[in-house]
């Protein structure tokens, strides 16, 4: 197989509050022999909030990020669900509206850039599943996670709206019965746990504006995983991770029950199975202690 190569859009979180996510992404890519060219020029995607304030500005900035991936002639890989949704949504809107695309490109021309629509945008989870292949992951596993019940937490912005999301990857994902993360858990030798909240929202985006709503959603998610006997949770989204890892105190108060589980980034889970060390994966950067390694 030819070496897989992508343009990496890290997003902001990987550079700030979830350094372990950046570390584990690079460690896993290295193990799998995937080359990631970091888009160091990229700006924040606006995280589904900038567009509430200034939709056009959000489009221009996201189009600029994609334009840099296009310059490399590479598919853009994201490592954050919300980055994925915002960027893919920008692509969808520009690719389906010539007038809007021209307006955005008139702005980009001021800095010598152009959005063409030539790069695909996919989340690292689907790059692994579609392009690398779960069978090959299975073959490479050196530390099967067989003693663990693992609860997948998909995160809204990787699975909904499914029509848009399914434009971004080859495998089909249902928003109601998603399987990608379950399949990855199984490929790593783990036992995937089924629970009601696995495809529900953690409330991250309303944490400041609607703290009680956000806390109850987080509480329900962790409680659901605990009641299904999960040893830990895994998510492809650093924002879900922040919420589930750092906010369990508020969540416990909100639902009137003590809830807490270790939460791993999807990359950390794969890394563990492939034999990376806990230090390489940044497991010491979690607020809820990862006590099983």
């Amino acid at each position: 197989m030819e070496k897989l190569k992508y343009a990496l859009f890290t997003g902001c979180t990987a550079k700030e509050s979830t350094p372990e996510q950046m570390m584990s992404t690079l460690a896993v890519a290295n193990k799998l022999g995937i080359e990631l060219v970091e888009l160091t020029e990229a700006s924040c995607c606006g995280a589904s909030h900038l567009q509430d304030y200034d939709d056009f500005l959000s489009l221009v900035l996201n189009a600029r990020n994609i334009a840099y991936a296009e310059k490399h002639g590479l598919t853009m890989v994201t490592i954050c669900n919300t980055c994925q949704l915002n960027t893919a949504m920008t692509k969808h809107r520009l690719d389906h509206n010539a007038e809007l695309k021209a307006k955005v490109n008139a702005k980009l021309a001021e800095v010598g850039l152009e959005y063409k629509g030539s790069s695909q945008i996919t989340h690292f989870l689907y790059a692994i599943i579609d392009d690398f292949g779960l069978d090959k992951i299975k073959e490479m596993v050196v530390t099967p996670l067989s003693q663990f019940n693992i609860a997948p937490f998909y995160g809204c912005h990787n699975i909904r709206p499914s029509e848009l999301q399914n434009e971004s990857h080859k495998s089909h994902e249902s928003a109601y019965t998603p399987t990608s993360l379950d399949d990855l858990i199984i490929a790593c030798g783990g036992v995937n746990v089924d629970y009601e909240q696995k495809n529900k929202c953690c409330g991250f985006h309303a944490e400041l504006q609607a703290p009680r709503t956000a806390a109850v959603l987080t509480g329900n998610a962790v409680a659901g995983a605990m009641d299904a006997n999960a040893d830990w949770m895994v998510t492809p989204c650093p924002l879900c991770h922040l919420k589930l890892d750092t906010q369990t105190h508020h969540a416990s108060v909100a639902i009137g029950r003590e809830v807490s589980l270790p939460v791993l980034h999807m990359q950390q889970m794969v890394g563990l199975a492939l034999g990376c060390t806990p230090a390489e994966l940044g497991l010491n950067h979690h607020v809820t202690k990862v006590d099983f390694v």
């Binding site: 550079k15 700030e16 979830t18 500005l57 980009l108 800095v111 607020v287």
Partner: peptide, 30 residues
């Protein structure tokens, strides 16, 4: 304590920040 907070003086910056700033100036609508 878990290394999850970047202090203001260590805030990373995007490369070609001038481009981003120029676009914010010219593309802001509100």
């Amino acid at each position: 304590t878990k290394g999850k907070i970047v202090l203001p003086w260590n805030m990373p910056k995007a490369d070609k920040l001038d481009e981003i700033q120029k676009l914010i100036k010219s593309s802001s609508t509100v």
